[in-house]
Amino acid sequence: MLLIHCPYCDEKRPEIEFAYGGEAHIARPHDPSTLNDEEWEGHLFIRSNPRGRHHERWRHIHGCGRFFNAVRDTVTDKFETTYKAGEPRR
């Protein structure tokens, strides 16, 4: 069971306190109506699914409730870092 550092609580807590939230840094377009079908499909469904460094969202759902971002290696499952929502991609 992973230990995950919540950047808001500034604590490492067990995985069962958290919920996974999919790939990070996929901002909802400001005005989706300006996107054509292909662009909207890309926003909705297409994800990078890398082998290695993956930027992803987690929520400290059974803790402070905040969403935050993390960089996790999908091969080793190691967290490289976690950081608050809104901070630049690391």
């Binding site: 939230g21 901002a27 969202r57 929520r59 905040r66 969403f67 929502a85 809104g86």
Partner: peptide, 13 residues
């Protein structure tokens, strides 16, 4: 509630 929190915290803070 989770969905609302998601949009509120990450899309429209």
């Amino acid at each position: 509630l989770n969905m609302m929190e998601d949009y509120l915290q990450t899309e429209w803070p």
